[in-house]
């Protein structure tokens, strides 16, 4: 019997298995174990969390394969890793290591200021960031099998995550009310592939799974994103830059499952210790915003 690997169904499907879950940034095997024990549905292996990338400055690149392999060995849940926007050789390396998902991420320094990776060329699936429906559908057009709204990574301020999720979800609602002759103009105005605009209208949702990212620091933040209509949440600096990472990680996992139950949200928000030190994203100069990277 014929066996097919690396299909679109397979790529999209793994993201479907992550829904209703929390994907946590981890920088070593110990943190990966803490994340798995807390109930993370996947981990993102990277050398520095976004808050440290911001503080350190310089060029942020793909992580050392040794560190990624140690994390793969440490946990049974899926392991994701980041490559730079447009850096298809970093992506080839990550694929050869056996990572389960690649994040072509604006958190790292872009390698190409005009083009993203042609992700259909890979067997491993990709997740990409977006700020709006046009950016989301362009990435899916290139082969991203999962989307995350970008927010503003490393700030602990959820305002940009809300802005981007509202933009994407609002556009999908808007599409529902359009008749078919308006779709080409929508595609033109948003810089989005026409076929994917049509598909999004027909489905009434994004054609692939859509998580929120960038600034989620508390259980209430995570539940807010879920109630706005995303499928799950990435938490970067928010867990391991907080006072009690293990406790906060469990609380955020519970808040994503019980996102509509205010009594449970109150309970898991209690006595969590200090949240990460935030940085006001709305007052940040445009050139410091990571979310503006992506074309």
């Amino acid at each position: 019997m014929e066996v097919k690997t690396g299909t679109w169904t397979e790529k999209k499907g793994l993201a479907q298995m992550l829904k209703g879950g929390v994907i946590m940034d981890v920088v070593n095997a110990e943190q990966a174990k803490i994340a798995e024990d807390a109930g993370a549905c996947a981990v993102m292996a990277l050398e520095r969390v976004p808050a440290d990338i911001r503080a350190d400055g310089g060029v942020a690149r793909m992580s050392d394969p040794d560190m990624i392999l140690k994390i793969i060995d440490a946990v049974s849940i899926p392991v994701m890793a980041k490559c730079r926007i447009g850096h298809f050789v970093e992506a080839q390396i990550l694929e050869s290591l056996g990572v389960d998902y690649i994040d072509e991420s604006e958190v790292l320094t872009p390698a190409d200021e005009e083009h993203h990776i042609l992700k259909h060329n890979f067997k491993v699936p990709f997740v990409c960031g977006c700020r709006n429906i046009g950016e989301a559908l362009r990435r899916i057009g290139e082969g991203a099998a999962m989307i995350r709204t970008k927010g503003e990574a490393g700030t602990g301020d959820v305002v940009e995550a809300v802005r981007h999720a509202r933009s994407v979800i609002g556009s999908i609602r808007q599409l529902q009310t359009m008749n078919d002759e308006e779709l080409m103009t929508f595609a033109k105005n948003n810089g989005a592939p026409y076929e994917l605009v049509k598909e999004t209208k027909e489905l009434g949702r994004m054609p692939v799974v859509n998580f929120a990212a960038g600034g989620v620091a508390t259980p209430a933040d995570a539940a807010l994103m879920m109630q706005l209509g995303v499928d799950g949440v990435f938490v970067g600096s928010g867990i391991f830059k907080s006072g009690d990472p293990a406790k906060r990680a469990v609380a955020i996992v519970k808040s994503v499952t019980h996102y509509k139950d205010a009594a449970i949200l109150a309970e898991v928000s209690t006595n969590l210790g200090e949240a990460m030190v935030g940085r006001n994203a709305a007052q940040m100069p445009e050139e410091e915003k990571l979310a503006t990277r992506g074309w």
Binding site: M1, G6, G98
Partner: peptide, 16 residues
């Protein structure tokens, strides 16, 4: 046995 066929790149479709 969990993850018995390998990692995501080994995930597959077939007829049964």
């Amino acid at each position: 046995q969990r993850n018995a066929f390998g990692r995501q790149i080994d995930s597959f479709e077939t007829d049964l």
